[in-house]
């Protein structure tokens, strides 16, 4: 199976382990991820503040290149890239004149029919059904699933999961044998792009997130965004200073959690690349049965209705 892969800048830099784990996980399920040739920057936070046409042209070019390769689904693991591609697809579909203007700029054929999948949608579409039978080492930890802002917003465009109390990652963690805890900061802001300019703010915001998870006995935090990861993981010294307490809880990508559950080793999944050391003591599996997943949660769309 051939599925497009858009890494964006982070997969090639600070979040190499995210790409490594996604690719490794896909391989377990016989899925080949094809990097879109000659891909460019998604525009991220900068472009749409400066030039609307530019901010639409950059993602449009990525999707047009994918179309050229005959790719119908693109996996976009970074939540910010996912947001930019999805928003562009939506805006161009809504406004035909804008669409023709943008396709003029990129000088490529663009139909807007490519599916943009975030990491969870990718897993749900291609992996979830076969996940439970492949789990060899249940991820038997109290896990706090942290969704952040861009993965589920804006709901009107993405129509993915519940905005204020998302559940999709919790379901995956449960299917991997983990205990997804109920906690309060699932979608609070981590500080995002202020990581460099206002590290103090990031320390406060990310600190409150980690503290709540830690107070509720979480042993590990799971994310699906490289920006969230770097704030929660890399800014740990500042966070610990702000909290005046040492929080040693590791922060993993959802692809790494699933990878561990299906038996991939720590090195393949890039666990060694995290700033906060990943120490996950072996724990006896409480019951052989896979954790029960409530059907109510499995269909977030229905709950919104």
């Amino acid at each position: 199976m051939k599925i497009g892969f858009y890494p964006g800048c982070s997969m090639k830099g600070g979040a190499r382990e995210y790409q490594e784990s996604v690719v490794a996980l896909a391989k377990v399920f016989d899925i080949e991820l094809v990097e879109i040739p000659d891909w460019n920057c998604c525009g991220a936070t900068a472009a749409h503040n400066l030039n609307k046409e530019l901010s639409l042209s950059l993602p449009a070019r990525i999707m047009a290149l994918a179309e050229k390769e005959g790719i119908t689904d693109i996996v976009v693991p970074c939540a910010a890239c996912y947001n930019r591609l999805s928003v562009t697809k939506h805006e161009l579909a809504e406004d035909a004149s804008l669409c023709s203007k943008v396709t003029g700029i990129i000088d490529l054929k663009y139909s807007g029919k490519t599916n943009i999948l975030n990491i969870i949608q990718f897993i749900d579409k291609y992996i979830t059904d076969k996940l439970e039978e492949k789990v060899v080492k249940p991820f038997n930890y109290n896990t706090a699933c942290y969704y952040g802002c861009l993965l589920v917003r804006p709901h009107a465009i993405l129509n993915f999961d519940r905005v204020e109390d998302p559940q999709s990652m919790d379901v995956l963690v449960k299917k991997s044998g983990g205990n997804a805890i109920d906690w309060a900061f699932k979608t609070e802001c981590c500080g995002a792009g202020m990581s460099v300019s206002r590290t103090d703010t990031v320390a406060r915001l990310s600190g409150d997130i980690l503290k709540d998870a830690s107070d509720r006995k979480a042993e590990v935090m799971v994310v699906a965004c490289p920006m969230c990861h770097s704030n929660l993981d890399m800014r740990r010294p500042e966070i610990n200073k702000y909290l005046d307490e040492k929080i040693s809880m590791p922060v993993l990508y959802i692809s790494q959690v699933l990878g561990l559950a299906v038996g991939l080793d720590a090195k393949t999944l890039g666990l060694n690349r995290h700033m906060t050391e990943v120490i996950l003591p072996d724990k006896p599996v409480k019951n052989a049965e896979p954790a029960e997943v409530s059907k109510k949660v499995a269909n977030p769309e229905k709950m919104e209705a």
């Binding site: 204020e164 906690w183 309060a184 900061f185 709540d212 107070d215």
Partner: peptide, 11 residues
């Protein structure tokens, strides 16, 4: 925006 429980209080 949100309500959550912490130490027996509702924040």
């Amino acid at each position: 925006s949100t309500i959550y429980e912490k130490n027996g209080k509702l924040i």
